[in-house]
Amino acid sequence: MAIMTVFANPHRFMSVSQPFAWIFSLAGVALIFAGVYMGLFLAPADARQGDAARIMFVHVPSAWLSMFAFAFMAGASLVSLVWRHALADVAAKSAAPFGAAFTALCLTTGSIWGYPIWGTWWEWDGRMTSVLILFFIYLGYIALWQAMDTPQKASRAAAVLCLVGAVNLPIIKFSVEWWNTLHQTATFFTGDNNATYGFKAPMYVVALGYLALFGGLTLFNMRAEILLTRAEMRLQRRLALG
């Protein structure tokens, strides 16, 4: 709660957020390049899939981020509905395009990976279908924001949609166990697996890079959103004064 009230003030947010936005974004880009380099050149080739498996260093972290971003938006939406916290609305709205981008990246890289390994670009298996639906929920969320006349109405409606859509997150998580079709089950955080350190390190570095880039870009987007609101208020005041 203490953290929330400290950052509840948009003025304080505007005065401290800019350096963080730059640091996170630049660190994110650096980490992504480092992680991709490690994944492409330092990590061992997969025993069965060879070099084709290296796309997982892009694919798996983007899947994590697609879900993390939506969970973040759902949390922000809850805060906005319960405490009417203006900054929470801005945070959820600003994160949406990047969450959608990570989801699209996850679907695209998964498709590119699937063709040489599974022999198909697309299969209606539980994991892929539920991630595709997550992508549609992102699109609906963004469209709802754009369709409303006033930000107040849009924020309430979008927050409700976001909380309802969060039902999909556990479905994605458990889809590989409920429908055991094509996509492999989780092997990463389970104890007994063959994902050795050489595989794990690049994955973590890229994931950290995505996370930092997501945070940085979201901060930039939030700042732009707040500045836009201020500019509109100033314009209206000037019009009112004549």
Binding site: I133, F136, I137, L139, G140, A143, L144, A147, M148, D149, K153, A157, V160, L161, V164, G165, N168
Partner: peptide, 23 residues
Amino acid sequence: IGAALTAGVRRGGLLITLVALPL
């Protein structure tokens, strides 16, 4: 749910589709 979310949107029919179909 989709209908209520888009009640204030003029010609929200297509938006309902996008919002409700995942559900």
